[in-house]
Design a protein around this nucleic acid. Structure first.
Lengths: 205, 205, 205, 205
DNA sequence: CATGAATGAGATTTCATTCAT
DNA sequence: AATGAATGAAATCTCATTCAT
């Protein structure tokens, strides 16, 4: 697979290349990143890249996997601290938003993956969704989740987290405000769209 | 802008090229689509492409705009038929899923847009979100929507629709089942994650 | 050779194409002029060009010949009116400057010719030079021209006229001032560079 | 600007490319020279050209500047050795003819420049003319040049040198004969066209 | 290990010319 | 006569990858 450096210097070079690749991919996307962009940023000669990596796709895959693993770990750790399913959801999205803000670049890479490496892209989301469905299933058994299509539900929840992050972190380049988190949690727990009441008065939750 | 054909034959050729471009982009993505793929599929000489379009980006933009316009029209028409906000949401997502299923190709193009044309990508979602926020605001005044951060809410709803479509239409290449639509509508109206019941069967971590 | 139009309309079209070609060649040069520039300016379809001309080179040659012929005629007519060789030179350069100013475009075409059609280019200048040498030879016999290498002399005189025109007409886009004509005539008749006089005083002509 | 090679090998390659470009441009002109002609002659792969130069125009400009600089240096050095203005003119044209003969290629490039790069073309001649005018002005103060329009005079002298070189070096592919140099020097110092004397005898200067 | 020059296949793009209408 | 769409050969340019030093 990847060449494993045998010296301290080699390790540093590989590290520099990986960091440079992450930045390039996240800023310009996979296809618009040239090897020379990466080696330029890493301040190495073009040929050096091929000492450590097979080719462009190989670094991309490595970064995808790395991203995916780190995100899972983080979210998983957050869930450990939760006392209820609703709590878990809130901690989960908070952690997710934090992760996205910290690794804006890596996060963007995922969007690019569908055409670079369709399988990796599918696997990424399906992996998340399956774990989610398992947890939702357990919670359902305990009466903490309504009896609904869990596949649809898991993708709905992933969609919410992704698009709220997209808006605040990617488009606005900021943090997700508390009001938004409250909106998400309320939507999850009570819904947001109310049936028309005959008298039209605002309902009490 | 685009060259406007002066004869029937020219019109047909331009049409063929647009269709070919749509198919190529949706199957291989923007960057992996070569002009020669497009002209090959359209069965024209390479040069013919340049009679009608400036370059690859120009066709891409055209398709993006076209997609956006058609989707809005469809959803808007659906909303006209709705009797309540909740009804509107249901009709809206149904129409959206139908559109995605019918134009799977065009829909995929949007995902590719962020690196091809960041502005167009942002504009696309922001356009949708604004319209959504306006409608939610009106519904809120009528007590049909909870008093929540409407920006976060609009992006949540867009996220739900997009990811459910991603799962069933793109990943599974099928239709969105009724059970999924029911899950979405229930989530919107009543929420899906319930607070731990007072009887307190303690959740297991 | 060229197609000869059989109708009034055809004649007009050919005329329009020739005028357009002249303007394009003179503004952008031969190689940078595209057939579509010419037909665009002439307001005809691209195909129409090929009804009247074999190809691009063919129009270029036509224009070169035309230019050459017209210039000769003009200069020749001027020389007819001259009473002495010196007079002829003055009238000749005046007529040349006038012609260049009136046909700035056509004149420029000549410069382009050396690479388009080396032979035409050589022929153009050699033609001029020969005629010049003949006249200078006659004048020499009459004691109106010094006994010098007439080939060198003819090219010197052509060079003077061309570069003075280049400066004032092409670079400055104006007319050649009287002072410049006086300088040229004085140079021709008395020279301009004086030997160093021991006392260093300005000489009297 | 241009890429600066970091190794001896790179330097050699750049040099080979420059020489090849010079030869191609001078033989076929700018527009008819293809990059592949240059790389073919330099015996490199097509892509190698783009390591060292941005594009065709960039090499052309480089060669123009180089030519101009070298010619100035040569002529300047010649003038240093002159004892009078007339002497300077003779040494100047001799040096010029020698330079043109040695660098026939580079010299031809200039003629092509007006459509390739109008500004460079104008700058080239204007640069020469200005320097010339300065020197003529100084000589005039010393009574070594007649009181004439110096702009016209400088372009006349440049024109003479250029067209005499054109004839003997470019057209004839030989050297400028002594008789031609004598003709030029005589023209400059005493003129060549004499006013008609009533008796028709050769005048004495 | 690192370098950076060289490669060359392949992509984009141009445009003179043809030809059916 | 005129049109203008279509052609396709040829030119420009890119960039992942190799390899001698």
């Amino acid at each position: 697979m990847h060449y494993t450096p045998k010296t301290r210097r080699g390790e540093e070079t590989k590290e520099k290349l990986l960091e440079a690749a992450e930045r390039c991919f996240s800023e310009k996307g996979y296809f618009q990143t040239m090897i020379s962009d990466i080696t330029g940023l890493a301040e190495t000669a073009p040929g050096t890249f091929y000492i450590y990596f097979e080719d462009k796709l190989s670094v991309f895959r490595y970064l995808m996997d790395d991203l995916s693993r780190r995100l899972r770990e983080r979210v998983h750790a957050a869930l450990e601290r939760s006392s209820s399913r609703l709590d878990a959801e809130e901690l989960g999205v908070r952690e997710f938003f934090k992760f996205v803000a910290e690794h804006k670049g890596l996060y963007r890479i995922v969007w690019d993956a569908q055409f670079v490496d369709t399988e990796a892209f599918t696997a990424y989301y399906e992996g998340f969704a399956h774990a989610y469905q398992r947890r939702l299933g357990q919670a359902e058994a305990k009466g903490e989740v309504r009896d609904l299509d869990l596949v649809a539900l898991s993708y709905s929840l992933i969609g919410i987290a992704n698009f709220v992050a997209l808006k605040y972190v990617i488009f606005e380049d900021g943090d997700v405000p508390e009001s938004a988190i409250k909106a998400v949690v309320t939507l999850l727990s009570q819904g947001a769209i109310l049936p028309p009441s005959p008298e039209g008065q605002s309902p009490r939750p």
